[in-house]
Amino acid sequence: MGRISFSRKSLGIPYALFLAIFVVAPLLVLIYYAFTNGQGQFTLSNLTGFFTNPNTLGTLCYSFAISITTTAVCLLLAYPTAYILAKSRLKAKSVIVMIFIMPMWINFSLRITALKEILTLIENNLAFYPFLNAVIGMTYDFLPFMILPIYNTIVKLDESLLEAARDLGADEREAFLKVTLPLSIPGIVSGIAMVFLPAMTNYVVLDMLYNSTYIMGSLIGSYFAAYNWNGGSMIALILLAIICLFTLLTRGMEEEDNPRGGALL
């Protein structure tokens, strides 16, 4: 028979090729640079250097502080907003949700420049409040990413579960604490993942706010700017490891709490 046999496996070739070229290869290059010195010899000095240098460790801690604060502020703002949006009986609900998402479509640099002007107007000199401004800038940038997944989980919440809780003797507050809140955890987790991780590395926002604050992203940038590719690669690799760890942790939580998924991530 002259039929051309076309294995389903061969359909995966382009995808595998893409993965190899754009994911695996750069990663290998990154690892190569991270564990070699300028002469191309294997060394662990980049790794030990990172953990012994108070400068880099300080930046890591500072990045964490900014990320955690930003995530917390985002969560505090986003949860009530998402809750009210999801629970309201407004017919124009989708329009209001759109209003919260629309900033994401406006050019990023335009948004941050506008924010910069407003902050300058209020604070006179942006340099006085580097931490505050960093948090404000990132919150402004990342808030929609927190609202959306939370909104999605609350909107999909089965109303009869709340009625069941009320029926079994819970008042409205208890029903919220025992049913709505635990069941919106998948949304919260994916919201956190979408805010916390970018906040660790996104230094463009800070740059544009003329912010002197130094976070992990800026640190890597400075290493590469100074042609220290090996040190920069190691920091990038460490950051990658942290992110992987975090993702694994949250993924585990999500699956346990809601096997049906429902969140954005």
């Binding site: 009625e163 009320r166 029926d167 079994l168 635990p182 096997p259 049906r260």
Partner: peptide
């Protein structure tokens, strides 16, 4: 009277068991 104050319980159409 709100539902939590009534000595009445309901079996729901789609069970409404708490998945968590």
């Amino acid at each position: 009277l709100p539902p939590n104050k009534r000595p009445i319980n309901t079996v729901f159409q789609r069970y409404a068991l708490f998945p968590h």
